[in-house]
């Protein structure tokens, strides 16, 4: 994600938290909140970090070594509304809207990894790669979770449910280096990449626009308004369009989120 987008996210968060501060001061907003609360609604804002990756499951046998893995600075911002269904406020449904970055940078060693590079002009180079692969993922998603919320005691809330993701901005690119390509198949011409020879690839246009997944997590009320939360989001779709066959295995976005929440 770009720096500009990070700034936008922070601005969004600050404005919303500003609103929440005002809520106490402005009689009409506090009246609305009070009214909503008495009808069983509760509102909150969350901000945190995303740590994880887009990974095939299980790791395919072509991957021989992970040289490095960097989740990079990926953030998550969300607003949530919970409607408690029982007077004791134990069970509820939570609707959310969440912006997040799903990022990673990895360097891996692969053996006999099927790949195809498709140039902008339609030229293709297909083959089996043995050597190093660097992958950069920078995806921004807008998510809409619908969760079951369970409040076993005053301080804890446990949530579980599905979410829908819309890709706002996607980048999946990288390069291959230090290895060799067998053109077409493992018996094809051997083309060695050494001495700094690299070939770039960019599959950003092959990313799936709409995905869904499941998430589970919990939050803990440290103070009256301040919460600590964590949740695991597990993509049920591969991050690529189903027609995309260059990467022969599906990669699923799996991220752990850690952060703070503010409840009105």
């Amino acid at each position: 994600m770009t720096e500009a987008m990070i700034k936008k996210f922070f601005a969004f968060f600050i404005i919303l938290s500003g609103c929440s501060m005002l809520a106490g001061a402005q009689p009409w907003t506090s009246r609305i909140l009070q009214k909503a609360e008495s009808a069983g609604w509760e509102f909150g804002l969350k901000a945190g970090f995303n740590i994880g990756g887009c990974s095939p499951l299980p790791l395919p046998r072509e991957i021989r070594e992970i040289d490095s893995f960097n989740p990079t600075l990926a953030i998550q911002l969300s607003g949530e509304a919970t409607k408690w269904l029982d007077p004791g406020r134990v069970w509820g449904v939570t609707f959310g809207i969440r912006l997040d970055n799903k990022n990673m940078t990895t360097r891996a060693m692969v053996k006999n990894y099927s790949m195809e590079i498709i140039g902008g002009d339609g030229n293709r180079l297909k083959g089996n790669w043995s050597g190093h692969v660097k992958t950069d993922v920078r995806n921004d998603y807008l998510n809409f979770p619908v969760l079951a919320s369970w409040k076993p005691d005053e301080r804890w809330v446990v949530q579980f449910g599905p979410y829908l993701s819309v890709l706002l901005n996607g980048n999946f690119s990288g390069e291959v280096y230090d290895g060799y390509l067998r053109e077409g198949n493992p018996t094809g011409d051997k083309i060695v990449f050494s001495d700094g020879a690299v070939a770039g690839y960019d599959f950003s246009r092959e990313l799936r626009r709409i995905l869904w997944g499941l998430q589970a997590g919990c939050e803990w009320a440290a103070f009256r308004h301040l919460r600590l939360y964590t949740n695991l989001t597990w993509g049920m779709n591969g991050i690529f369009r189903p027609e995309f066959s260059t990467i022969t295995f599906s990669m699923y976005p799996i991220y752990l989120n850690l952060g703070f929440g503010y409840n009105f």
């Binding site: 990974s55 299980p58 790791l59 395919p60 046998r61 072509e62 991957i63 021989r64 070594e65 992970i66 893995f69 053996k111 006999n112 089996n128 067998r182 493992p186 018996t187």
Partner: peptide, 14 residues
């Protein structure tokens, strides 16, 4: 991740 690395596949080259 390293712990998840599976057994190496037999060679495909000839």
């Amino acid at each position: 991740l390293t712990a998840c690395i599976r057994e190496e596949a037999p060679n495909a080259e000839a």
